[in-house]
Design a protein around this nucleic acid. Structure first.
Lengths: 338, 338
DNA sequence: CTGTTAGCGCATTCAG
DNA sequence: CTGAATGCGCTAACAG
């Protein structure tokens, strides 16, 4: 039997000798009270029959699903962690999360997932920086389903209820300062254009950092995709006598840099000083340990869910900022310690 | 408006001047034909009104959800990759996946998620080695919902339709052989008990490998959790003159070992030869590169979804094996190359 | 081909 | 405090 007819409240009602309405009442802890006696009877019957409420029927009936849809670029690393925290936060307030991966910023997949989630009539949506443009998104999410962005900057109000973003720009800006303070005479940012808007923010922060703290200091920008890091480092070391600072897109890229340096016998942190982002497992466990920026997962998840809940509750936007920016925390390790 | 009433087939039917059955036919039912003309009218009306089918209503009505529930220990690394592949495979056959993380083998969370998925009336379940025991699982999954395990060994037939497992034991067994061939005089397995059954399989493989290929060769077993790897390695190097082989639980653990060795100036691969598992990013990008076992994600996902589909189709189990074992592939890198 | 009708399982009025 | 009745949006026979 592909679907061996599950037990419904009707059967529970019969077994307990009450009406289905009563069963519904006691099982869903609705505002309505019932006598101790009926409660006991119903709960017993439900227990014995192995009753399990049918989410679809319930959702259909009350026009509310208690489900939140999440779309992230991948299930792993930063994104995975974020999803885990979101899942936890959601559960704490009685919601449940449906997580989809867009396979690394693929607009077609994003679109398909969005469509599925909307067909499920999720109560809200949390998306990590959609690759599809404003217009496309608007044409899909016009259903009145609240959408909060994670790491999405400057989204029009009619599309996204709000956004809670990480302070990547600030982190990169500060990274420049740290490297300058540590005596670097040249500073490089090695990004990852494939990560779209994330890379953009980091680059902006880097440039603003150079402008503020880097007077008289040279800088370079490169992209990690397809880059021969060994050759790149060799070139750097050859060109410059002073210590060189490198800000990596994230700890993954930082690891590649670290390995290349180790392989070439370039001394870290004496010749090159390195900072990553994410404070991944990699940063903690590599040698030398990579200085990195820790991510406030809990805070970000909490705020995102909070924004949705708020939207569920009141129709008007509160006085709160639509776009929240959560700062990262610098964790210094051996790649920048002298 | 928290739920601005979405458009239904009724409205589409009115706009197109046909009955709701016709709308349902052309929109979501392939089987039944309609005249070109009505199809056009209906599709146009649906398009203009922005109709989006209500999954709950559809599922409720046909008693089938086209949804598959997935429970994995975490959203990242091996598990995350697996989930991505499952998602893809599922989509290819018209299903959609709901992925939940059990927060690292937490039985309580597993249970909760299972409950939610069953309430959603998912058509099938895919779980990664549940931490809760057979009995508990049976008491929950008695609903007739097919369950296929990923990396679950010896689950009773009345609980799990089948299983598709990775050949961890075989990989560890072969790892021993490789290390012996490379001249190691002592071989260690550094596991991770927290990963339950996965660790168990690897340990079994290790022991079987020692029995087969390790005559006259010493071996040790340790657990990475809370282990001071530096001290451990120092001890090993001090005790043994010959090259030492280490099989790490996975590439994460391997990285810790690598870093500790680098820090202590212990030469890899001359003094210590190292093999990881998973062929993660880490293995490829660390220095020296870590020899590791590549995981056939596609194959595993394909088989798992296939098993479910098969179950959906026929009630009888086919002649196929209930438990499939998919082999890993050895990728040799610098930590074992002489 | 197309329309009519009867549920799917549950929440929710509104009477008793 | 409890029960009968109505509808959520859609699919699946079954008639026309």
């Amino acid at each position: 039997m592909s679907k061996p007819k599950q037990v419904t409240i009707v059967e529970v009602a019969e077994a307990a000798g009450v009406s289905i309405a009563t069963v519904s009442n006691v099982l869903n802890r609705g505002g309505i009270r019932s006598s101790k006696e009926t409660i006991r009877k119903v709960e017993l019957a439900a227990e014995q029959l192995g009753y399990r409420r049918n989410t679809m029927a319930a959702g259909l009936s009350r026009n509310k699903t208690y489900e939140i849809g999440v779309i992230i670029p991948a299930l792993g690393s930063y994104y995975g962690q974020l999803a885990e925290h979101l899942q936890l936060e959601a559960h704490n307030v009685g919601y449940h999360l449906s997580v989809f991966s867009s396979g690394g910023f693929d607009p077609a997949i994003e679109r398909r997932h969005l469509e599925v989630l909307l067909e499920r009539r999720v109560d809200g949506l949390i998306c990590h920086g959609l690759a599809m443009g404003f217009e496309t998104t608007r044409s899909i999410v016009n259903s009145g389903t609240p959408l909060v962005m994670i790491n999405g900057w400057n989204w029009p109000e009619d599309i996204a209820t709000g956004a809670v973003n990480l302070g990547f720009a600030g982190a990169c800006e500060q990274s420049v300062k740290v490297l300058v303070d540590r005596g670097c005479g040249t500073i490089c940012y090695i990004g990852s254009k494939g990560s779209k808007v994330i890379d953009e923010r980091r680059r902006l922060g880097f440039q603003s950092g150079m402008a503020q703290h880097g007077s008289g200091i040279g800088h370079e920008i490169a992209d990690s995709k397809g880059l021969d890091i060994g050759a790149y480092l060799s070139g750097l070391v050859q060109r410059y006598q002073h210590p060189i600072g490198i800000i990596a897109f994230d700890d993954h890229v930082a690891l590649r840099i670290l390995s290349a340096a180790n392989r070439l016998g370039i001394d870290i942190p004496n010749r090159i000083r390195l900072i990553g982002i994410n404070n991944d497992y990699i940063a903690k466990e590599s040698y030398p340990g990579i200085s990195s920026w820790d991510i406030p997962y809990y805070e970000q998840a909490h705020q995102a869910i909070g924004k949705l809940l708020h939207k569920f509750g009141s129709k008007e936007d509160s006085g709160e900022d639509r776009e929240i920016e959560v700062p990262l925390t610098f964790i210094e390790r051996e790649t920048t310690k002298l």
